[in-house]
């Protein structure tokens, strides 16, 4: 899967989860830019991404995933 497609799928997840259809993810988007991206939402986000892409994050990865560029890189690496 190419990165633009990952961005697009991720964007859908963000819009669903944070209930905001105006979210447009950029590489530098982080928890500070998205209303409601708190620790509980972060867990939900991780679980939703895992389900959507059928991947599994390691504990250390979850800790570090706080901007979108990094998130997309990790997903892309896992998808191979």
């Amino acid at each position: 899967m190419q990165k633009p497609q990952i961005y697009s799928e991720l964007n859908d997840i963000f819009r669903d989860l944070f209930d905001d259809d105006n979210i447009v993810l950029k590489p530098e988007t982080s928890a500070d830019d998205v209303d409601g991206w708190d620790s509980l939402a972060h867990i939900n986000l991780i679980v939703a991404i895992e389900a959507k892409f059928k991947i599994k994050f390691k504990t250390a990865e979850i800790e570090s995933l706080h901007n979108v560029e990094h998130l997309v890189d990790v997903i892309a690496a896992k998808l191979g």
Partner: peptide
């Protein structure tokens, strides 16, 4: 286990 360790969620969101 990772969600328990991180967020003390015994039953996960899924």
């Amino acid at each position: 286990a990772s969600l328990w360790n991180r967020a003390k969620q015994e039953v996960g969101p899924a």
